[in-house]
Structure formats: C-alpha cells, structure tokens
C-alpha cells in the first residue's frame, strides 16, 4: 500500500539573521502516522515546527501540506490549510479570559453552522475525550498544567483536523501525566486516523508513541537520522544518534569516547 504524504518539506532553509539554523532539510510525513522531530536543545526543532504551521515563512524551500505550498499560496488557500491542522503549544496557550468550554467552542462557533445547543454538546464530547468532563466552566488559571495541556488538545482538535502538531507535549509534566498524554495521542491517532507531528526530546515518549522519527543536529544543520526509534537506538551508524537514544553523556564528535 503506497502511503500518501500529507506534509512534504523540500530543501527548507531557516535562518535568524546570519545564523543558519538548518540548511536544505527535506522529509515527508505520511498520512496516519505519528511522526516525531527530535534533537538536542538548540537544534531548531521548534523553528522547524513554526515553519510547518506557517508561523515563519522559510528563507527558501517549500512546505507542502495536503498539496498546497503554504509559503507561496494565496491567503484563502492558506486559511483552508489552517483548518486542516491543529496545534498544541508548549504552554497550551489557552485564552485566559475564557472558560475551557468557551476556549474549545471558539473555533466550532466561528467555522461551523451548528446550533448553539449542539455546540454545547460537542464541546462536552471534546472535553470528555481528554478526560476533562466537569471542568467546562473552569478558567485556565484554575486548573493544573497537565489539565491545561489536555484542554489545549481539546481545542486543537475542535474541528477534527487531519494533522495535529504538538510542541513539547511532555514539557513540565510529571511522568504519570506525561504517559497519560502519550496514551491519549496514540488513542487519537488510532481512533480518528489523525496524522500527528510531535516535537520533543523526551525519550520515553518517543519510544511510546513514535512510528518514525527524524533527528536534527545543531552542527550538521539538518537531519542526521531518520527511521524507527528503536532501530536507530541499536543500529544507527552515527554514534551521536545512539548516544542520544541511550542517554549517554557527550562523546567526541568523531565518535571516540571521552572517558
């Protein structure tokens, strides 16, 4: 079965001023997979995510989502692409002045014609899906970090996007909550067939959820490994990749051990 690529990245170059963050990066994300972008701090993971969702336009190269090149398409097309994606930000980015149900209802009310009563039911379902039933009328400031993440997820999923992006989903969460979030991600992927792109460096999450990973590196300014995380851990040619997956301390870049 030929898998269809929903995101195609071609020769993407990103720079801040003089600094080239990554140079000519290309990869595909296929429909229905959980795709993880990983790498050490400062390798441009978050920058890559911002390019994928169109927050930054690339210096050169293309980001194609569902056939539309989001860096070059017109505004109307871009708006359509935005309806196909949902983003869960690191700090959940819930609107502080609105209750959880208002946060989730906002895109539903704006982009569908559902009657008010049905919106209410749908919001209950969405919040139920992330185990937040009973918290409809809470403000974001009244709930914990893990709950905020889940509420942010409910909002990101409000319109059932084809692709969900996660920026560091486990950041700031305890291991139990973080594992629950991982389960939720797998669950969503299986039940709705949502394509999921995660940016993280949390090893346990990677092994728990990822179908395929790419690893970025600061020095190589690009992808240094691609494939199944468990395979990379055990069989990668690149010692730095094995080191990352096995959580070892720094070795010299030529692969010889420092100890």
């Amino acid at each position: 079965m030929a898998r269809q690529a929903v995101i195609q990245v071609r020769d993407l170059v990103a720079r801040y001023g003089e600094d080239i963050i990554f140079d000519r990066v290309s990869f595909d994300v296929y429909e229905g997979e959980i795709f993880v972008v990983l790498g050490g701090s400062g390798c441009g993971k978050s920058t890559l995510l911002k390019h994928l969702v169109g927050l930054i336009s690339p210096d050169s190269g293309q980001v194609i989502i569902g056939g539309d090149d989001i860096s070059r398409c017109d505004d109307a097309t871009f708006q359509n692409v935005l309806k196909k994606i949902g983003v869960l930000y690191q700090g959940a980015a819930l609107f502080g002045s609105m209750t959880l149900s208002e946060n989730v209802a906002l895109p539903i009310i704006e982009y569908t014609d559902l009657p008010q009563r049905s919106v209410a039911t749908l919001v209950r379902m969405k919040l139920g899906l992330v185990d937040l039933d009973g918290y409809e009328n809470h403000l974001p400031s009244e709930i914990s970090g893990g709950m905020k993440k889940r509420a942010g997820l409910a909002r990101a999923m409000a319109l059932n996007p084809k692709i969900l992006f996660f920026d560091e989903p486990s950041a700031g969460l305890d291991p139990v909550t973080s594992a629950e979030l991982d389960n939720l991600i797998v669950h969503l992927n299986r039940s709705f067939g949502t394509t999921i792109v995660i940016v993280t460096h949390e090893l346990q999450s990677i092994f728990a959820v990822a179908h395929r990973v790419i690893m970025l590196d600061k020095h190589a300014r690009g992808i240094i490994a691609e494939g199944d995380p468990e395979y990379l851990r055990d069989h990668s040619q690149n010692p730095f990749v094995r080191q990352f997956f096995n959580r070892q301390t720094k070795k010299n870049r030529d692969g010889t051990e420092e100890k």
Binding site: Q116, A120, T121, V123, R124, M125, L127, G128, L129, E136
Partner: peptide, 12 residues
Amino acid sequence: LHFESLEKGDPF
C-alpha cells in the same frame, strides 16, 4: 465518546 451515557447538559 461515551455515546450511550452522554446526558443532556449545557456547558455554557
């Protein structure tokens, strides 16, 4: 979605 047990109610 707990379809069977979704009772009525208005979150707003």
